[in-house]
């Protein structure tokens, strides 16, 4: 299956890529191509020019500066998953990267390309929203930084201007945390689609027993399409815990409304609460209270279905965050 015809230019630098964007109407940037090429083959996108930025080594980097990790836009999901620096500074990023698509998708797909595509259910969109990341965008007049909350403007629409290029994503580190009890930690759980959604499972942890959990913990859970592994609905949580009590929470959901959003009502319901299974289950029921937009649906997952699944994924993420398996 061929794409429509297009003119092809290979950019040798960020400045050249910007100049090519300015001099070509209807041009799109090509990074790993794992969002754009499938769209073009389905004729859902028909740019007249592709500007290949895949060779710009400057945009392929991971560096930790104090309490922030800066990831170059062309860094692949696979490189993020394999990075010791990322795993050390913010293990959630590494876990999420390692659960995107499949090994071949992770070898080619880039974090910049993923957020530029702005699929409402994208793993990165949801997780970066919860992490309060920021996006560096460069144009002819220099660089600017866009807060993630302002970045996604609609389905497949972002704050990146017509002649701008995403150069990096900056993400705060997570403070270290410790589990003093024997509860299994959430990492290593199946990131590739919780195909049971917890239906029919009994969670018998309601009585608590989560002694001495401290620090900032991040987790992500999603329901994926079974063939493509593309996320359908996902929930990301960052909870700050002191003595098993939630001091603050950031919760984001993807695949529910036209952009990834913070679930402020769930955050409010969690704050100040002891993080027991019962309190978590009660808090996630507030998910649809305050979304600010109508729930989306498609042939694979209707709005009604997403409304039911999304709180379950947020609940799973929270269970993992506090060391409770959801099985």
């Amino acid at each position: 299956m061929y794409t429509p015809e297009f003119d092809y230019h290979k950019a040798g630098s960020v400045a050249e890529a910007i100049a090519l964007l300015i001099s070509h109407d209807d041009a799109r940037l090509l990074a790993g191509g794992h969002s754009l090429l499938p769209l073009m083959r389905l004729r859902l996108a028909r740019p007249s020019t592709l500007i290949d930025i895949g060779g710009l080594g400057d945009l392929k980097s991971i560096s930790v500066h104090g309490d922030a990790i800066r990831i170059g836009a062309l860094t692949t999901h696979g490189e993020i998953a394999a990075s010791h620096d990322v795993r050390h500074a913010n293990s959630l990023l590494a876990e999420v990267a390692g659960g995107i698509g499949d090994p071949q998708v992770r070898n080619r797909g880039t974090i910049g390309g993923n957020i530029a595509h702005a699929d409402p259910a994208s793993d990165w969109g949801t997780v970066l929203t919860a992490l309060e990341a920021s996006v560096e965008v460069q144009g002819a007049n220099g660089s600017r930084t866009v807060a993630i909350g302002d970045f996604f403007q609609g389905p497949f629409a972002t704050a990146v201007g017509e002649n701008e290029i995403i150069t990096a994503v900056t993400v705060p580190t997570l403070t270290h945390h410790e589990h003093d009890t024997g509860h299994g930690h959430g990492h290593g759980h199946d990131e590739h689609g919780h195909d049971d959604h917890g239906h029919g499972h009994e969670h018998d942890h309601g009585g608590g027993g989560l002694a001495a959990l401290h620090g900032e913990v991040g987790e992500y859970a999603k329901m994926s399409h079974p063939a493509s592994f593309y996320p359908v609905v996902g929930g990301a949580v960052i909870v700050n815990v002191e003595n098993s009590r939630c001091v603050s929470a950031r919760v984001a959901v993807g695949g529910l409304v036209p952009t990834p959003v913070r679930a402020r009502a769930v955050e409010a319901a969690l704050t100040g609460q002891e993080l027991t299974a019962d309190n978590i289950a009660a808090a996630v029921n507030h998910l649809a209270d305050d979304l600010g937009a109508a729930i989306i649906g498609d042939v694979f997952a209707s709005a009604e279905y997403r409304r039911v699944v999304a709180p379950v994924e947020v609940k799973h993420a929270l269970f993992h965050a506090i060391g409770l398996a959801h099985h």
């Binding site: 299956m1 092809y8 290979k10 090509l30 191509g33 794992h34 090429l37 499938p38 083959r41 290949d52 895949g54 696979g78 499949d102 090994p103 071949q104 998708v105 070898n107 080619r108 063939a227 493509s228």
Partner: peptide
């Protein structure tokens, strides 16, 4: 559609789905 993997080859050592990669890339 980048799902089945019948077209996997190695590109500079990394496996890729060659149906989702342009020859120019």
């Amino acid at each position: 559609t980048s799902q089945c993997g019948a077209c996997v080859v190695r590109l500079d050592g990394a496996t890729v789905k060659s149906c989702t990669c342009l020859a120019v890339q």
